[in-house]
Amino acid sequence: MTSFENQNFNFIEVGKQVLQTEREGLEQLDQYINHDFSRACEMMFNCTGKIIVMGMGKSGHVGRKMAATFASTGTPAFFVHPGEASHGDLGMVSKQDIVILISNSGESHEILALIPVLKRLDMRLICLTANPDSSMGKAADVHICVKVPKEACPLGLAPTSSTTAVMVMGDALAVALLEARGFTPEDFAMSHPGGALGRKLLLRVSDIMHTGSEIPQVSRDASLRDALLEITRKNLGMTVITNDLMKIEGIFTDGDLRRIFDMGVNINDAKITDVMTTGGVRVRPSLLAVDALNLMQDKHITCVMVADGDQLMGVVHMHDMLRAGVV
């Protein structure tokens, strides 16, 4: 590994300079959240099709992120590469769609080549450039100016501040639409079922509960010793006491065992009905797992019965929540 020999170079100072330059660029964006921004939002809000985002190079990378943010926050959208659009992918675009075109200069020739075709298809165009008088700016139905004083790159060549500003403007559009639609956390979870939020908001108790032979359960005629053996076998720190029809009579937990030791109860002679807690906390299988978790935390318990009225259907433990990613 080659060591860095320029001892006078200060990486930290340069990094902070970049952040300062990009902050200054973002401070300029307020002036562009204007009537044109509002018109663009109204167009997208009323769109009956999808939002198609296009951009070349770094603008394309930003465009992919912008389309992904739209799609995950209630505005159907996808990215189309301008080069691929010229070779067949334009077939994915319909008249009901709105096209967002991104280019800092507003003169990207790959995009300019598409504009006559998009106009012929009677497409509505929203263009994001740094120059309202550019070819793309003049062709747009709505032009949103996204201009920064300078790039963070000292050469003024690598897109840095400009791409950051466009990404922030895309976020502003997406969040404005999100709020206008009344988009909820549950809506967000539906498009993120594999994420942590999706698991928290979509997973139900029935998805993770123990059922059948996994349920720690003894009859009301069982001895305390039988109940302790069942708790040990099932390893959930509790057992449910039921009648012959699996109707819940009560519950006995590790905590109850500690209490009866203090009471001097004879483990060998006691019946489970003498020491159980009658009834017990229970939830319905349709309850969201996160709500069951909140209940368990409020009650300071680690396991809860799952039931339809008094009919035992399963049990769910705090560890099940952990494994499912609900916590």
Rank of each mutant, 00 (worst) to 15 (best):
F9D: 10
E13N: 14
G15W: 04
G25F: 05
Q31F: 06
Y32T: 02
Y32W: 10
I33L: 15
I33G: 03
D36T: 13
F37M: 09
M44N: 01
M44H: 02
T48K: 15
T48Y: 09
K65H: 06
G88W: 05
G88V: 08
M92G: 00
Q96K: 14
V99T: 12
H109D: 15
H109V: 13
E110F: 03
V117G: 04
R124F: 08
L125D: 01
L125W: 01
L128C: 08
T129A: 04
A130V: 03
A139E: 11
H143S: 06
H143N: 05
A152C: 07
S161N: 06
T163I: 09
A174S: 11
V175D: 13
A176N: 08
E179M: 10
R181T: 09
R181W: 03
E186M: 10
A189F: 08
L197K: 13
K200H: 01
K200F: 00
L203Q: 02
L203V: 13
S206N: 10
G212Q: 08
S213L: 10
E214V: 01
I215Y: 14
P216K: 00
R220K: 12
D221P: 07
R225H: 13
D226I: 05
D226M: 14
T232I: 09
R233K: 11
D244K: 12
D254A: 07
N268G: 01
D269I: 12
K271F: 11
A289M: 08
A292N: 09
Q297H: 11
V304R: 13
V306D: 04
D308V: 09
G309W: 09
V315M: 12
H317W: 02
